[in-house]
């Protein structure tokens, strides 16, 4: 029997369905997740299967979606909250970093918060203002929160199941540009992708591209173009920013001695800065060229008609990789 193929939306929907079936404590809450099935349809069909008390259309108020999830978790439920777009975590920021992230610590281990926050993000789909903001690094500065960034349908399902079962809070960022871009084999049934395990998504001897989420797909296209010019790029998909797999990162960069970090967030203090600093500490003597970063500019996300000038592009990645390979 052929393995089913799924895109990211279908993989997420499949993971949620299977987990709600397996564990009656799991519930979904957020804006439009019930009747509509989510603005991207990731939760489509779930209210019909599991009812309005387990798939809850909440009032339009992000802080209470997260705060209530914390309380629900303390009561013994396993909430999966959706923030409709990652940019609107700003409205809930306090309930995420300082509250969810610290609850185990603040209660000295008496309580923990088994809460998953799902949030679509990223540019390239011509969303309105605030919807595309890649603010993942803000949560890396919130100890206690895991920050996970799947880049493909297989990882999306396996990492979402891992997130829901993790006893600690997880921010699960969904690459909305990839939601329906392609399908790949995503098995039915149970499997998880562990956190803190980066993967080498492409082998190559000349330069190492480091990325996560939708930027991995961008790097794949850039690597194909580089190959036409006889530059073989490897790609490290970090998969999770917290926990960070330093070992895989360092080994992959040491193997080529050259590194280009690619992300959609603005350059300054993006997670790429953390990657570069880690490499400076752990791989300095293996580097043959300065580390390069390709990121969005340090300006607000522009109107949709200009987003392709703002986001990292294949050309910018290729150019940085060539420069780094030649240095």
């Amino acid at each position: 029997m052929a393995m089913p193929e799924r895109n990211v939306v279908e993989a997420i929907n499949n993971a949620l369905t299977e987990e709600m079936e397996r564990d009656p404590r799991v519930m979904l809450l957020g804006l439009d997740v019930g009747r509509l099935g989510g603005v991207f349809r990731t939760t489509s069909g779930l209210i019909e299967k599991y009812g309005a008390s387990r798939v809850v259309d909440t009032p339009l108020a992000e802080a209470s979606i997260i705060g209530a999830s914390l309380g629900l978790a303390v009561s013994g439920m396993v909430p999966v909250a959706e923030i409709q777009f990652l940019g609107f975590t700003a409205q809930a920021f306090h309930q995420i970093g300082p509250q969810l992230g610290k609850y185990r610590h603040r209660s000295r281990g008496r309580y923990h918060a088994q809460v998953t926050i799902r949030a679509p993000f990223g540019g390239g789909i011509r969303s309105p203002e605030f919807h595309s903001d890649a603010v993942e690094a803000q949560f890396v500065q919130s100890p206690g929160i895991k920050v996970v960034m799947p880049s493909n349908p297989y990882d999306a399902k396996g990492m979402l199941l891992e997130a829901i079962r993790d006893p600690d809070p997880v921010l699960f960022c969904e690459p909305d540009r990839l939601y329906r871009l392609y399908r790949m084999e995503v098995p039915d049934g149970d499997y998880t992708v562990p956190f803190g395990k980066a993967v080498v998504a492409r082998e190559g001897k000349d330069v190492t591209l480091v990325a996560w989420s939708a930027a991995v797909e961008l790097c794949q296209r850039a690597a194909a173009k580089l190959a036409e010019e006889d530059i073989e790029a490897s790609i490290v998909d970090l998969r999770t920013l917290v926990p960070l797999d330093v070992e895989t990162l360092v080994n992959a960069v040491a193997a080529t001695g050259r590194c280009v970090i690619v992300h959609e967030a603005p350059l300054s203090a993006g997670f790429g800065a953390e990657v570069a600093a880690t490499l400076a500490e752990e791989a300095f003597y293996d580097l043959d060229a300065p580390i390069a970063r390709v990121a969005s500019w340090d300006i607000p996300f522009p109107p949709a008609s200009m987003e392709h000038w703002y986001l990292p592009s294949v050309d910018r990645v290729v150019e940085a990789a060539k420069r780094t390979a030649a240095a």
Binding site: A68, G71, L72, A73, S75, M77, H94, Q95
Partner: peptide, 15 residues
Amino acid sequence: AQLPQAVGLAWGLKL
């Protein structure tokens, strides 16, 4: 900040 959490707790106990 305790209030949304308290609501979630009450909600979960009710569920």
